[in-house]
């Protein structure tokens, strides 16, 4: 019986971990290519969730289409944010873009509050029903989320390996100046990066909304945890962000189950401190 429960908690942890990974990949990508620490990435995740909610609840769009719509709409918003907030500061002291990102996060949070209201919202689950594996009950909704997160992560990996701009992104994260010599335009890359990162965050937002609740401040703790995930995995290291997300999700789930529910938001930072003490280069760096 205890083993069954353990597996259940493990599965829960993997699901939250997959969602962390989706958001953290974008954060890592933006830093890796553009050296911007995007403090507004959590709010982009929240906007994505609310765009999905708006499409589904207010406009009556079917949930799967609302999911895609949220990704597309939020990608467009990410591109606009890059153009208006970050590009003018590209050659300025990095502190400037950091402060602007904080400003953007306040702006988006209050925008959500104005438009969406303060009360928590929720989306319908994408799937109902339970998959029974022996004595273990896995809600189909959870499996669906894990599968979809996996598909999206695989898609971004394939994009980075196969697509011309994916290759350009990886080259630029290693040497921006030399990438320009190859004909890579940093303006175009900045657009691609913000679009991809925002779309992934929006996907995570809608998925979160179908299990947990939507709140205007939902981006704050997500961002904090994803910074932990990115540092855990090694900054700018995408496989690291995936592993880091899963590790954090599982650690949180197990701590809540076996120690105390009050620990949920503490675990991330305990993990961070331990990681910085023993593997400051990140879990996968140099391995």
């Amino acid at each position: 019986m205890t083993l069954v429960l353990f597996v259940q908690h493990l599965a829960n942890g993997l699901i939250t971990g997959g969602l962390y990974a989706l958001v953290a990949i974008g954060l890592s990508l933006i830093y890796g290519v553009l050296r911007i620490i995007n403090f507004a990435h959590g709010e982009i995740f929240a906007v994505g969730a609310y765009v999905g909610f708006f499409l589904w609840r207010v406009l009556g769009v079917p949930l799967p289409l609302a999911f895609v719509g949220a990704m597309v709409g939020t990608a467009a918003m990410g591109v606009a944010a890059e153009r208006l907030v970050f590009r003018p500061l590209r050659f300025a002291d990095p502190l400037n873009s950091m402060i602007s990102a904080i400003g953007l996060s306040f702006l988006l949070q209050n925008l959500i509050l104005q438009v969406g209201g303060a009360e928590p919202r929720r989306l319908d689950p994408f799937m109902s029903g339970v998959l029974l594996v022996g004595p273990i009950a896995l809600p189909l909704q959870y499996l669906f989320i894990l599968g979809l997160a996996g598909v999206l992560i695989a898609a971004i990996e394939v994009y980075l390996r196969r697509a011309w701009n994916g290759l350009a992104l990886r080259a630029s994260s290693q040497d921006l100046g030399t990438a320009a010599l190859m004909g890579v335009s940093i303006d175009r890359l900045a657009r691609v990066t913000f679009a991809a990162a925002s779309a992934l965050a929006a996907a995570a937002g809608v998925l979160v909304g179908s299990v947990f609740l939507l709140q205007p401040t939902m981006g704050v703790s997500m961002a904090a945890k994803c910074f932990v995930v990115v540092i855990l995995g090694g900054v700018g290291n995408l496989p690291g962000a995936i592993v880091g997300g899963l590790v954090l999700g599982v650690a949180e789930s197990l701590a809540v189950a076996y120690v105390s529910t009050a620990l949920r938001d503490v675990v991330a930072f305990v993990v961070l401190i331990v990681a910085l003490l023993f593997r400051p280069q990140g879990l996968l760096r140099g391995a």
Binding site: L167, A168, R170, A171, D175, G177, T178, L181, M182
Partner: peptide, 22 residues
């Protein structure tokens, strides 16, 4: 460029491929 500036974490083939980007 001086100092070669190959992309260290791209493979040889990927370095050649990015050369054709333009």
């Amino acid at each position: 460029p001086e100092g070669r500036r190959v992309f260290p974490r791209l493979t040889v083939v990927e370095n050649l491929r990015i050369g054709a980007y333009s």
